[in-house]
């Protein structure tokens, strides 16, 4: 233990302390704290950036999702449309062919009827003239022409009714 206060020590330690404080501020914690502050700012700005990017990304993802959804719906509707058109077309084709067939049948029937009619008429004429020829050969002498004709027609009518 000191027997007196050493004022020299007091003065020296105070001076040393103040000098050390100033030197440390100048060379040690001053610059380091600046760097720390800088880093803090840097980190916070980076975080903000990251936040922003994340939000952007989320927005884009949402947009893309909607886009895909829409594309899907569109594809669905296109497929449905195609189905509907193809069905309609098929039905149309069937109906058309059915009508065509009907028409063909009708025209064929009409043809047949007409041919038949014609054939009957021809036949009738043929038969008429043949009968006349036959009859005239048979009964040439007994009948004048007028009566003959009358008779023949009667016969022919009779024959046509039987036909």
């Amino acid at each position: 233990m000191p027997e007196a206060i050493y004022w020299g020590d007091v003065v020296f330690s105070l001076a040393m302390f103040i000098i050390l404080l100033l030197l440390l501020r100048r060379f040690a914690w001053g610059p380091i704290m600046n760097v720390m502050k800088e880093r803090e700012e840097h980190i916070s700005s980076e975080i903000e950036n990251a936040e922003k990017h994340r939000k952007d990304a989320e927005k884009y993802v949402e947009e893309q999702r909607l886009e895909v959804e829409r594309a899907k719906e569109e594809a669905q509707s296109i497929i449905e449309n195609a189905k509907k058109t193809s069905e309609k077309q098929g039905e149309d084709i069937i109906a058309q062919s059915r009508a065509e067939a009907e028409r063909l049948k009708e025209s064929a029937q009409a043809d047949i009827a007409r041919e038949k009619e014609q054939a009957i008429a021809e036949l009738r004429e043929e038969v008429g003239s043949l009968s006349v020829m036959i009859a005239s050969k048979i009964i040439e002498k007994e009948l004048d022409e007028k009566e003959q004709q009358q008779l023949i027609e009667d016969y022919v009518k009779e024959a046509g009714g039987r036909l």
């Binding site: 000191p2 020299g8 020590d9």
Partner: peptide, 11 residues
């Protein structure tokens, strides 16, 4: 105004 040299040096 005494001075303890050891203190001075160590400080």
């Amino acid at each position: 105004f005494h001075v303890n040299l050891s203190n001075i040096i160590m400080l």
